[in-house]
Nucleic acid binder design. Sequence first.
DNA 1: CGATGGCTTGACATTCATCAATGTATGTGG
DNA 2: CCACATACATTGATGAATGTCAAGCCATCG
Lengths: 246, 246
Amino acid sequence: MHQDLASTALAPCLPRKQQAPAATCPELANYLPLGDNELTRLMAIARPVPVAAHRRLFLDGEPADDTFLLSSGAVRTFRLLPDGRRLITAFMFEGDFLGFTVDGRYEFAAETITPARLCRIPRRRLDALLDDCPRLRNALLHFATEELRLAQDHMVLLGRKSATEKLASFLLHLARRHARDGRTTEPMQVPLPMTRGDVADHLGLTTETVSRTLTQLRATGAIDIPSLRSVTVLHPGALAALADGG
Amino acid sequence: MHQDLASTALAPCLPRKQQAPAATCPELANYLPLGDNELTRLMAIARPVPVAAHRRLFLDGEPADDTFLLSSGAVRTFRLLPDGRRLITAFMFEGDFLGFTVDGRYEFAAETITPARLCRIPRRRLDALLDDCPRLRNALLHFATEELRLAQDHMVLLGRKSATEKLASFLLHLARRHARDGRTTEPMQVPLPMTRGDVADHLGLTTETVSRTLTQLRATGAIDIPSLRSVTVLHPGALAALADGG
DNA sequence: CGATGGCTTGACATTCATCAATGTATGTGG
DNA sequence: CCACATACATTGATGAATGTCAAGCCATCG
């Protein structure tokens, strides 16, 4: 079902020398607090990669040859158990770094959910650049730290929250993230690019429970569900109260 | 119940200038692959802190003024929900770094489980040292990365494993960790410094379920439980098979 | 030696998973 | 453009895993 990315979306990028002006990733500037010089050097090694929906970017355990900046679209990162059970460790959106590792192997698999644009940064070159670019190093360290913080939050969610609390927390998280990136509509309409099954595999539930719990949340008036792929947060306060059993 | 550390164990360290030869942390050398020069500089800012059992080291959200290296004993790191539910994000042992953060606030709370010895490293001085000590920076980055990898593993455990799988995974993890640090006995006897309640709060279960599941595991012959605070892994293969439903 | 906290075991309750049927959106080929 | 196929979503009925409540046991520590 899932084609390997290397043979499809990434392939067109490999023969870089043929196109006279190599494509660049100007959007890097939007996500990294860097000086002109550092940005120029980073852009020199980054290449834009458009990827279709539902394509695998990499698998966990593979050599981590590239780091990616996601500049549009949504990605899921996950781990599988031998029998196929899946846990989606995170959903990634515009501005997130993906696949940055220090020990040379990806720690999770990643697939696009929607069509996406990525900036692909070869690891060897990035490492070299990091050596004398403290601000970039710092920026990546901040991303890694944030990732760890989110992982801690999520462990609490997975280990100690009820289905309702899980959904409320998740929707709030999505809403905040969406507000952070883009525009804040009132009432806040939040896109849900992932399926109910994806949500279930992120929250440690089943599709059915996600569906039922969303229906219940709608019944409380905290949210509305105008379409399958979006949720309107009508009452953030109520949702926040539900999110940790307050 | 839990006294604040600052008023007790840490206090003797604060007036550093009074003791003629300031105490040092020679054990840092055991855990960090550093050159003599870097090690000397790190030891110059690190101070040993003995801490009794069941003392709080810090709370999540507090200013992260110190980073610690745990040189003996066991520590639990955790988060609390407003109503008191607890999730223990990790157990820390000899050689683990604790409280290293980039944004100035601790991301979780930490308490000793047993009496412990810590090397306390003031954050401001550590940051300064990191700026021109790439190997130390690299070592800390590796620790942070490892922490993230463990967090991913644990999310899979919390979200997708049964009680039996959780306990089997946990015991294997402890056994491997113990083998890595210290000596490997045959059959492998693994200390369990934490209570059943701690284990439950780490695995997203209740004390009762932990107790029952351990009894079941013993019945399978995979482990023995010679005392409340230790487990003997009789059949690592069987335990590994149980750990992910293989 | 008694008290306290931790552990185990049992009976029962509850949440959520499972199984099953139906409904709905999406995309494709005729 | 429509009809169909497919994947996804919802809803209901049922069951299993685990939580809750309760009692008693055991170990440790003053």
